[in-house]
Structure formats: C-alpha cells, structure tokens
C-alpha cells in the first residue's frame, strides 16, 4: 500500500476483489489441501510486490495461528476414528481427525489469506468509491467511511478516559470484580457523549445537503487502466482452465 508505484496497488478495487475471489474459488476447485495451503505463500508474494509484506504476514499470523492450532487439537484428538497414530494415556491422535483438520484448516487459511491480502492492497476509500459507482446508496457508504474514521478516534478517547479514571483512583488493575467496576464509569460517559453528538451531526449533514434528492457527484476519481482488463481476462481464463481440468479428471 505504501508503494505507490506497484502495479498491483494501482489496480481498480473490483479487479483486486476478483483476484481474491479467484483465489478462494481455486482453493475449493483443486482437491486436497496442498494447493489451499499454497494460497498463503501466493498471497505473501503478492503482498510483497504491493509493498505490504510485513503488514500482511503479521495479520495473517494473528488471525490464523490460534484457530488453526485449536482445530488441530480438537479434531486430531476427538474426531471419531480408529486409525490411531499416537497415543498418551487416554488421549490418542487419529488419522481421520488429522486429515479432517488438514482439510478444514487449509480452506480457512486460503479464504482468510485472500481476504487479508485484498484489504492490505485496497484503500477503503477506493473500495467505497468503486461501490458508489456501482450504485451503493450514499447512506451505506456514509456508514462505512464514518465508522472507519470513528473507531480510532473512540479508541484514543477510551485511553484518555481510562487514564483519567486511574488518576481519580478508579482501579483498572487488581481483582476481577474491581476491574469490572472500573468498566462502566469508563464506558458510559464516552457512549453518552458520542450518542448525543449524533443529533448535531444530523444538522451538519442536512446543512450540507446530504438528503438532497439528486444524484451525488464525487471529486475523488479512480481510473480503470488497461491492466485491469488484462488481469480480469487472465483470471477468467485461469479459472476456466482449472474447471475444465477438474471436470476432466
């Protein structure tokens, strides 16, 4: 995302989304778990070329590691099966369980990687703009954009309020119940304040003709380039070959 010159980053959002969908479909068309797992390194390479390798890898680990580990634990030990690979006391790992876990996690890894990649190489602003062009109502795009602006603001405010509570002597460390009690006084002024502000926001939006009954325009522009066409055709051809190969198999 930082690398403005990378070709991948400059693709139109819908083209990028097609890449993601193609990767997901491919993971389900190709049998077994090998290819599905390979989607992760494929995405890593793509992320590298878009200049967001580190971000991508961090998020992928955060999102996937725990769930994959737990699926393996739950399935390999407790999946009903007979082919015991390893056992310790009453616990035993069964081949059927491991295979099921491999199948399940490979699909999860593939789909999740493809989506993490999409959001690393696509600015939300661009995505929303392209959705607006397709005809998504401006009220919907307002909610999306406003949410993404609001979350970091509210998180900052929370930290400020929590610090204030601390200096006032409200416990944010210590026993469970004590910490629980610290929760409400932290949250409630923040929430009441932001809920009350919606009333004035309505006035702001109405003053800016938000509910005027005309088709809105936009000074922000995104161009489709010849590469978009190229990538789209390439993806469709690849998918078609994959399907033919799968059917013929």
């Amino acid at each position: 995302m930082n690398n403005e010159r990378s070709m991948l980053s400059r693709l139109y959002p819908t083209t990028k989304f097609m890449i993601t969908i193609a990767l997901c479909l491919a993971a389900f068309i190709v049998p077994g778990y090998g290819f599905s797992y390979a989607v992760l390194p494929i995405c890593m390479v793509l992320a590298y070329f878009a200049g967001s390798f580190k971000e991508f890898s961090n998020l992928a680990i955060k999102a996937l590691l725990m769930i994959v580990v737990f699926i393996f634990i739950l399935q390999s030990f407790f999946y009903p099966g007979h082919d015991i690979l390893w056992s310790w006391g009453i616990f035993s790992i069964k081949r059927e369980g491991v295979e099921f876990a491999l199948f399940l996690t490979s699909k999860i890894v593939a789909v999740a990687s493809a989506f993490i990649l999409f959001f690393r190489i696509t600015k939300v602003k661009d995505l929303v703009h392209s959705l607006e062009q397709i005809g998504l109502p401006s009220k919907v795009t307002y909610v999306i954009l406003s949410t993404l602006q609001l979350i970091p603001e509210m998180k900052k405010l929370t930290l400020v309020i929590m610090d204030a509570q601390k200096t006032r002597g409200v416990e944010t460390e210590g026993k469970l119940l004590v910490r629980m009690k610290a929760f409400l006084p932290t949250l409630s002024p923040l929430i009441l304040g932001s809920v009350a502000s919606t009333e004035e926001r309505v006035l702001t939006l109405e003053s800016r003709a938000f509910s005027a009954n005309v088709k809105k325009s936009s000074i922000y522009t995104l161009e489709k380039t010849k590469y978009d066409r190229l990538v789209q055709i390439l993806l469709i051809v690849l998918l078609a070959i994959l399907i033919v190969w799968r059917v013929a198999l």
Binding site: K139, Y142, V143, S146, T147, L150, I151, E153, M154, K155, T158, L187, L190, I191, S194, V195, T198, E199, R201, V202, L205, E206, F210, S211
Partner: peptide, 18 residues
C-alpha cells in the same frame, strides 16, 4: 433508517470495538 438512526450505526460499531 432515519438519518438520526443511521448515524447511530457507526457509534454502535465503535462501542463494540471499544
């Protein structure tokens, strides 16, 4: 989905996050 109700949605999401 009045304008006032729509403006509540981002706040609700942010509260979930916070």
């Amino acid at each position: 989905f009045s304008l006032l109700a729509i403006l509540l949605i981002p706040i609700g999401i942010a509260i979930n996050f916070v």
